[in-house]
Design a binder for these strands. Structure first.
Lengths: 209, 209
DNA sequence: CCTACCGATCGGTAGG
DNA sequence: CCTACCGATCGGTAGG
């Protein structure tokens, strides 16, 4: 039965379990609120064993964050593809964005904590990694404005940032506050995003459909 | 020259200075990321002196938070008055809300951290303290919907929560990310809030003005 | 991946 | 408001 070689016989190795446990604890309690002992206890090893797999506590935080960035880089092509495809560009992009954060709400909490705890580092990361994505979406909005299909006074960059910020904050604080059901919050967020971007249909313009 | 009685001769007493310093540090670094030593150093006293004025570190956090709630309770009547006054109800309420958080961005950061760190306690507080305010504003929105002046498919409670959440998250992360200027972000937030609530003017309805 | 241990710092107390 | 001090826990290392 244990036919696999020893190196991969474990269902899930310590490194993988550490990342999974640390993601949850760092999202819930923050970096300073999470001790290596907490992580070790839930992983099921002794504290020094963690530091065999990661050189320091901060390296665990960095690895957790990078893992999230890798998930984002997997989702990003789908988002940008959605932005160039046919009709439902807007809903497709927003759906992918919603999926990314609702798939694992810890992503939203982790991101929010990083922004609060490490503003300079996150600012640099936004400028280098997120900016191109924001500009890409903002570019499509500008084209829509030139076609007369979108609100001409919308500020494309600020709009994209707001929709994203609102989504992250909503997902991060949702199950925590437990006030409104998440699907109801997200539905209203989508309605607000649409209503504040699309111009109401006039009788003249669109002919097809 | 030192004509004042000794009891109030200090420009600012230790308790007041502690609250001011702790507000900033707790907003910037969070509860677990701030030590009593950090606070004592900036206040300019020894650590045990803080614990003469406050029974514990958690009591300092609670006092800082309650001070913010008191500021909110000062602003709240102005907000609700704005909601019942004449024409510019919407802008007045939103202006007061914007003023509350931009007056001291640490309020937004503190609130966000509390929601992340103490979800259950904050959930209870929202339900007991914020709910009436949310319902009040949502009530005005419902009336507007019945008059046919506002988007009929808007979800009033979810709408109010989203505008507030977005404002808090935007102010909290603003100077930190340093991407868009705050006034530009806030301007777009107001535009989005208006455009997603008010129906575009039709030719028939309004006669006065 | 373990036991054993390190110096530093934590929140908090005693006692004046 | 201070000095002196407490036990507990922190991240991390030695060495096997």
């Amino acid at each position: 039965m244990p036919a696999q070689p020893a190196k991969q016989s474990k269902v899930e190795d310590v490194r993988t379990r550490t990342l999974r446990v640390a993601t949850r604890l760092l999202a819930e309690r923050g970096f300073e609120g999470t001790s290596l002992q907490d992580v070790a206890d839930e992983v099921g090893v002794r504290k020094p064993s963690l530091l065999h797999h990661f050189p320091s506590k901060d390296a665990i935080r960095a690895a957790v964050f990078e893992q999230m960035l890798q998930h984002w880089n997997v989702s990003l092509p789908r988002i940008l593809r959605a932005a160039t495809s046919g009709e439902d560009q807007f809903d497709s992009v927003l759906d992918e964005l919603i999926r990314f954060f609702t798939d694992d709400p810890d992503r939203a909490r982790l991101l929010l904590r990083e922004v609060l705890d490490r503003p300079r580092e996150m600012g640099a990361l936004v400028r280098s990694q997120m900016r191109p994505w924001i500009e890409s979406i903002a570019g499509y909005i500008r084209k829509g404005q030139e076609r007369g299909a979108l609100h001409p006074d919308a500020d494309p960059e600020a709009y994209v940032v707001h929709v994203t910020t609102n989504l992250i904050a909503t997902v991060a604080t949702q199950r925590l506050l437990g006030a409104l059901p998440l699907d109801r919050s997200v539905k209203e967020l989508v309605r607000m995003a649409r209503a504040s971007l699309f111009l109401p249909l006039k009788k003249e313009s669109t002919k097809k459909r």
